[in-house]
């Protein structure tokens, strides 16, 4: 009897929830804001769907309705990817330890 590939994806999903659970609990509370901005950035990996949607089909009909939705999604996700990672980087750069001098 063969296993439906859906079950494999479901397994990945469930296990990832557990991984997420343990990883996020180990995040220090002082970094919860960067945590939110970085999770926001990585959830924009939805751009892979947008790219497939945008580039699908013949070149002549590149602006079919479904492609246009793809392109719009690319813009939205790109704002998020660049904005999310950069603002996280900017925040994390500010976290400094006490200077040991004096």
């Amino acid at each position: 009897m063969e296993i439906d590939p859906f079950i494999f994806r479901l397994s990945i999903f469930i296990l990832s929830i557990f991984v997420g659970y343990y990883v996020v609990w180990s995040v220090t509370p002082s970094l919860h804001t960067p945590l939110m901005s970085v999770t926001n950035a990585i959830s924009s990996v939805i751009i892979v769907g947008a790219i497939i949607a945008a580039l699908a089909g013949d070149n002549i009909k590149i602006f079919e309705v479904s492609n246009i939705y793809g392109f719009l999604a690319i813009v939205l996700a790109a704002v998020n990817i660049f904005g999310g990672f950069l603002v996280t980087q900017r925040m994390l750069a500010m976290y400094k330890k006490k200077k040991k001098d004096k």
Binding site: R9, I12, F13, G20, V24, W25, T39, I42, I52
Partner: peptide
């Protein structure tokens, strides 16, 4: 799940549980 893409599934689960914990 729709796109059968593991990167998206993993990320979705991570972000989903992260937000829930927060």
């Amino acid at each position: 799940f729709t796109l059968e893409n593991s990167a998206l599934i993993i990320t979705g689960a991570l972000v989903g549980s992260s937000g829930a914990i927060l």
